[in-house]
Design a protein around this nucleic acid. Structure first.
Lengths: 220, 220
DNA sequence: TGATTAATCTTTACAATGTCTAGATTGTAT
DNA sequence: ATACAATCTAGACATTGTAAAGATTAATCA
């Protein structure tokens, strides 16, 4: 907010936000430290007071993406208490819609843009917390007899891999138009997730837009 | 093979192979056009006679990755005729083991390193052929009542997304050690794929290392 | 409070990279 | 054999990530 002072005041967060905006506008290929600094109104070396290098800045952007998804997931979990199925579907939907709405931020966050050599504590923490939330959800679904019993960690990996690959394929337009014309993304997601459920959801004969249990498929 | 001639002879393919080798040795972050050219023994501008730009070269490397997977999949399909279940499992295993054995070539090939703006005909063709093979396999599995009926394209997307996400999570070491210590990668894959089968495979009580139908899980 | 210290930002510099242009060399076709 | 097209080199340029040294300000402590 400070107009013209030598010290910016909140440069670190500004850089992260500018970086996210630039990702949305120009994509990953056009992403550069110097451009972010320029856009933030500082010199190209200013970021080095806050990030060790470009990778560290990318890690921070990734951490922010995790934080967003983590908060949204916790929101829908609280929104549908005692409805594990709905929690399950909506959690998946949070993940994939982040991928569709902010594809480049999603990629930075979840698609391995951060090198695994160095460890970034904040990022590791968010990864762990997100995975824990997912695992708890899985366990609740197992208790409600919605999905097969078994190692919750393994089931969590299955589910996460599932939705991640789903976003990826659609992002890379590897899905034939035959399919994308026939189904909405949400329908495809639910139909795919259906394979993981013990008793798959079926179309309500009266209201075709519902797949039982009041879960909307037409929402885009 | 030509030692010292002005014209290299087969520079285009040499560049692709050198590029793949460099990916395996130095990873994606260290990948550069100039380094590839240097390694191939030509000047930094020589590649521009064969590739429009760096993206085009990456697209060629991606195409080569698709070709490899495509050929290996067709090999295992022919190896187990009239055994759709085995074809299914081994096809998935081809995909994921490519990801584990050559992680960076895998990423270039399947993880969206190629920008979707320009179209690369050879790449588009390989993508299509690979997807077609998968779809045919799905249809055969459906006919054998192994997986649910329904739009084969959608099922193919589900399966592909599934295995892709699986590789991704393990590559990015997002899978907790609790799981990776207990199961081999192949076991995890089969246990995950199990969710897609109408009648899931179960452990053979006599031979614990088999999950019915003679499919090995211990193979690494 | 005032001096010292640490954090933050600028300036300058450098090597590496992707890409462009002009020209040299060589294979190919007429 | 000559012309042409393909292939490769040489050189140049802007951009990038990163490092070093110094300027400016905030924080700390006597």
């Amino acid at each position: 907010m400070s107009e013209k002072s030598y010290h910016h005041g909140d440069l670190k967060n500004t850089l992260i936000q500018v970086g996210i905006k630039m990702l949305a506008e120009e994509g990953i290929e056009g992403f550069s430290l110097r451009k972010v600094a320029r856009e933030a109104g500082v010199t190209h070396s200013a970021p080095y007071a806050h990030f060790a290098d470009k990778q560290a800045m990318i890690a921070a952007i990734s951490t922010d993406g995790y934080r967003k998804v983590y908060e949204r997931i916790n929101a829908v979990v609280e929104q549908f208490p005692n409805e594990p199925l709905r929690q399950f579907i909506e959690t998946a939907w949070v993940y994939v819609s982040f991928g569709f709405d902010e594809p480049d931020h999603f990629k930075i966050t979840f698609s391995g843009s951060v090198e695994r050599e160095r460890e970034y504590p904040a990022l590791v923490e968010m990864t762990g917390k997100t995975f824990d939330t997912l695992r708890q959800l899985i366990i609740r679904c197992q208790e409600a007899d919605l999905i097969d019993n078994g190692e919750p960690d393994l089931a969590a990996v299955t589910v996460w891999g599932f939705v991640h690959g789903f976003v990826h394929l659609i992002q890379e337009s590897m899905v034939s138009h035959v399919v994308t014309n026939r189904y909405t993304k949400r329908e495809m997601l639910i139909l795919s997730l259906n394979h993981l459920l013990k008793t798959p959801l079926t179309k309500d004969p009266q209201d075709g837009s519902l797949l039982g249990s009041g879960i909307q498929t037409t929402q885009e």
